[in-house]
Design a protein around this nucleic acid. Structure first.
Lengths: 343, 343
DNA sequence: CATGCTTCTGTGAGCGTTCACAGTAGAGAA
DNA sequence: TTCTCTACTGTGAACGCTCACAGAAGCATG
């Protein structure tokens, strides 16, 4: 029984202490620590016991110094932090990534690059090798950071399809187009023919893809595309409200709306309610995201669930593979229609 | 003009390279890097130029190995992650801390300890000295992690007043009691006399303090404390709804409700609406938090704004001070009444 | 008995820093 | 001159680990 390490900050035990305690050499302890190949069962056992007794934890700085790896990865958010931090999806993503990494015993460094200065500072930090790889969230088009990191040879996985087409950046994304198709098909299958759409921002792949899915289904159902039924939004609740008003003014006998985000869909519900339309009797409303807002609104929103938990775990998987040398460029995950009261 | 460091992963320049480039020794470069005392202006200049030319960034692992500091801090969330991650306040806090630390060039490690296993793993990680300090978010009472870390001598600052009274843990919190007092005073000043309250969980200091503030103001206004007007909640929207129904059933001529969170207040609004009460004419409603929910609900909520941006920056300040040796146990920050449509 | 092979173990070197220490040079005082 | 003091600079030795290498067994093969 050795004394426990409570009380004031004491120098933590080193690999030396463990080796002495176990009656072996540093090398053997190191081998046990790193997979235990070429170690006799007896030594293995002795080392593990010594580790338990001493409460030894490897000093990652010393290890990193020699291996060149940092055994940590960065979660980088560039640009509009306000919007992202209010987005519940972002939370789920961040949490998912943290946990997926924790399973590999890899800490996550949170890096927020709002300003140009921060972007420079963080890019330097990363390219200096202080993280082994980067999970990048950046809805904005043509993010220079992605290119810079890619050029510097930093393993990188983005969340969502990057818009700069030429770049060979890995990414993980939900199948926006297919999700949109599912929703619009659902609306059409309910007998709705005058289906409006409030789009996402059209400078993002998500916005473009969801609109594309809408058009595809209309074509496939033999419904003529009507420009008056398409209004732009920016994912905010306010833009949903404004969008619905615009739609109603143009096409008063509208019987369904596909809205590219739940938050906007909330706005749409408000506007419809104010205009005296009953949902879903008069107008069916379909959202996108399956955020908490979907359940909170009245009626609860039929929406497209994005598999955020899988997105995060896939991002981590792809990144670790890339660090290990396997390059894999894109993973696209299926979405799911969640039916609730609004359709 | 030396070549730029683009293209595949190249060994980054070391302090040696900078020294050679500048025509000085490692020691001098190191001194420039660490504050530049006892360095001649000429050397200083030469080193800075060399750093710029080579694109040198200090290797933090090597530095940490010798200094014993890691120059990074952990942001630790113990327990119920779902609740926190949906809480917009949490986001603001996390962002604020990240940015406040970035100003000191200190990376933030995000650590989520949901399960007992994770808690153990993370505690080991921390006590092994892999972070210099911890920002701890833990609403739960008597969190063993706080005590453990404190015992191990790890600098620690909590968000919110810890409930275990005996412990000498530093914390930063909003003045819950004073905020509650402000709100209830406001309601009373509007002429309301039958003021109900939906409390927060009473095993958290926030819940207790907000209720205490309510009682104080009633006493000071000469209104008798009526148990029927007090119903418990757990900060969730559903509990607000249930709470309001209970209040109405007990005291039908209720003319105001102080609700201990905005989310619950939304539930209260829903229930009041359903019961045919008009807000604020029949019943005035006051929330707490000033979350986005406050603006989103109809009518918009009068609420108590907690200074989350200041809370985060203060947490960082207190933690860094503690790491530097200055112990400071508690900071309590003032709240602010934000008046909107619900009163 | 030498020889190879496999499995295991210990040893020195070195990763990129900082820190303590030992200098050096120049200025001013004795 | 000689001494002291200040301002600055260079040099080894760490920090705790991994990795390459060398060697020591054990065992089969020539």
């Amino acid at each position: 029984m050795t004394m426990s390490h409570s009380g004031g900050r004491r120098r933590p035990p080193t690999i030396h202490d463990v080796a002495r305690e176990a009656g072996v050499s540093r090398g053997t302890v190191s081998r046990v620590l790193n997979g235990g190949h070429y170690v006799s069962p007896a030594a293995q056992e002795a080392v593990n016991a010594a580790i338990r007794r001493t409460g030894y934890v490897v000093n990652r700085h010393a290890r990193s110094l020699i291996t060149g790896r940092s055994d940590s990865i960065g979660f980088l958010l560039t640009e509009p932090q306000e919007r992202f931090f209010e987005d519940p999806n972002f939370n789920v993503l961040l949490r998912g990534c943290t946990q997926a990494l924790a399973a590999h015993d890899i800490p996550l460094l949170l890096m927020l690059a709002g300003t140009e200065d921060e972007r420079r500072r963080i890019t330097r930090y990363i390219t200096a090798g202080h993280v082994d790889g980067v999970l990048l969230v950046s809805s904005h088009s043509g993010d220079p950071v992605a290119e810079q990191l890619r050029e510097a040879g930093v393993p990188l996985v983005m969340c969502g399809k990057p818009i700069g087409v030429g770049s060979k950046v890995s990414y993980v994304a939900a199948d926006d187009r297919d999700g949109a198709r599912d929703m619009v098909r659902h609306l059409v299958s309910l007998g709705r023919r005058r289906v409006g759409v409030v789009t996402g921002p059209l400078d993002t792949p998500g916005g473009v893809e969801r609109l594309a899915g809408y058009r595809e289904v209309l074509a496939e159902a033999g419904i003529a595309y009507d420009e008056r039924l398409v209004v732009p939004g920016d994912y905010s609740r306010a833009s949903g409200e404004a969008g619905a008003e615009l739609l109603l003014s143009r096409v008063p006998d509208l019987d369904a709306v596909f809205v590219a985000s739940d938050l906007m869909a909330q706005g749409v519900l408000t506007a419809l309610h104010r205009a005296g339309r009953e949902v879903p009797r008069d107008v069916a409303v379909g959202g996108f995201d399956d955020s908490p807002a979907a359940v909170a609104s009245t009626p609860a929103l039929t929406t497209i669930r994005q598999p955020w938990d899988r997105i995060s775990s896939e991002m981590v998987r792809v990144l670790l593979a890339q660090i290990g040398g396997d390059d894999q460029s894109a993973v696209i995950l299926p979405t799911e229609l969640v039916r609730r009261g609004s359709t």
